[in-house]
Write a protein that binds this DNA or RNA. Sequence first.
DNA 1: TTTCAAGTAACTTAATGTGTTACTTGAAAT
DNA 2: ATTTCAAGTAACACATTAAGTTACTTGAAA
Lengths: 160, 160
Amino acid sequence: MRTDNRLSRMLHVLLHMQQHDCSATSDSLAQMLNTHPVVVRRTMASLKQQGYVDAVKGHGGGWTLSCDFEQVTLLDIYKALGESPVFALGLSIDNPDCLIEQAVNAALAEAMQQAEAVLIERLGHLTLAELARGIVQKIGYCAEPQPAIDAVDEEPPGVE
Amino acid sequence: MRTDNRLSRMLHVLLHMQQHDCSATSDSLAQMLNTHPVVVRRTMASLKQQGYVDAVKGHGGGWTLSCDFEQVTLLDIYKALGESPVFALGLSIDNPDCLIEQAVNAALAEAMQQAEAVLIERLGHLTLAELARGIVQKIGYCAEPQPAIDAVDEEPPGVE
DNA sequence: TTTCAAGTAACTTAATGTGTTACTTGAAAT
DNA sequence: ATTTCAAGTAACACATTAAGTTACTTGAAA
């Protein structure tokens, strides 16, 4: 089954944007994701709708961050993308009156709900800022051919 | 995204088979699942391969249980079906050298692995027998043949 | 020989994220 | 004003995979 990779991709893009601290075009982001600008716009539109990023049309335009990385969790981004189903496993309802089917599905649903709760809890307790700090710690940081900005070195009190 | 409902369906079928305590044809099982006999054979083949059920060709043939419900967990059935991916969420690897991408995916993978561990643990601690007992307790079910629900009423006399 | 039922192959369908092309809208630079 | 750039949008194609469907084969009992 094809997986939904949008959360992974958007987190990737958001951290790059914070690093560069200037507007990024869909073209440049598409190159990071090895895809096409339309895919970027399509997915980023969900984040814009929730106010996490902003878009400016026309010459010199592009995407900018419009949220506080300290306040936004991975769960927030997941939700902004539409809260798509977590599981590839599903409950089959072929015979709604069958008590056995109901009992089987109830048992599976309970297990899945517990697993989902763990995932949600983990995503909800990790902010974009913590994720970014984790990267800086591990790597010391560099990674991109974009010099000049060292805003990641010091702890910003909040993204302006 | 389309979900994989085979586990739900196979559990449903296994409990019905235990209840009836006689061989069941793919046709009769297909009616329980509101689907086609070929789908039943295709999915049951995985369970047969692991020895949980047995199949007999020809006149009077069909599917029979060949496992101890006390010893088989929901996890065993899940594994027999091929251990298909649990999650609909995936990690996007578009730029394998990008340290940010690596860090994002590592964070997501950790959350997903913890959630998956919970699911596996839950499925592994519930046996088919416990599931069956749960149904009997809730519903007051027993060895009585199914009334009307699944249209299994075409059995010729003398089978029991 | 007939009938029944599993086994198998091959194809279609459905759902959905992704890829792609083409066009529109809007804003800045010339 | 025209050009250029970049988001916004529509429409369609592609890939994946469980599920649905048809047709045929194999094997065993009546």
